[in-house]
Amino acid sequence: MLSFVGLGLYDEMDVSVKGLAAIREADLVFAEFYTSHLAGATPERLAEFYGKGVRILSREEVEVSPEGWIGEAREKKVAFLVGGDPMISTTHLDLRLRALRMGIVTRIIHSSSIVTAVSGLTGLQNYRFGRSTSIPYPYVASGKRIVATSPYDVVIDNLHRELHTLLFLDIQPDRYMTVSEGAALLLEMEEMAGEDRLKRGLGVGVARAGSDDAVIIADWLPRLADRDLGGPLHVLIVPASLHFMEAEGLVTLAAAPPEILDEAEP
Rank of each mutant, 00 (worst) to 15 (best):
E265G: 02
H92T: 03
R98I: 14
L2K: 08
K52V: 02
L28V: 12
F33G: 06
S134I: 07
Y176M: 09
M189D: 14
L124K: 05
L169M: 04
E67W: 03
R128S: 04
G103F: 03
E63Q: 14
L242A: 02
E195Q: 09
G231F: 08
R227A: 07
A41F: 00
K76I: 02
M245G: 00
V78F: 04
T35E: 09
T42D: 01
A148P: 00
E25N: 14
A183S: 04
G8W: 06
H234Y: 11
L167E: 11
H243V: 00
G249N: 06
A254I: 00
S132R: 07
H243L: 08
K76V: 00
L9A: 06
G203Y: 11
H110W: 00
D170K: 12
E61P: 05
S16D: 06
G84I: 10
H92K: 12
L233G: 05
L46N: 00
L97K: 12
I156C: 05
L38M: 03
D14N: 15
Y50I: 02
L100W: 00
I88Q: 08
A214E: 13
D153G: 01
P258L: 06
E61D: 11
H37M: 14
A26D: 10
E190Q: 11
L93G: 15
K199A: 01
P232R: 08
F4P: 01
V15E: 10
S119N: 12
L93C: 05
H37L: 13
S89R: 07
A207P: 05
S211L: 07
V235L: 03
V29I: 04
E162F: 05
I237T: 01
S180T: 04
H234C: 05
S58C: 03
S112A: 15
E61R: 13
S132P: 13
A39D: 04
A79L: 06
E195D: 09
L221K: 07
T91I: 13
L121M: 14
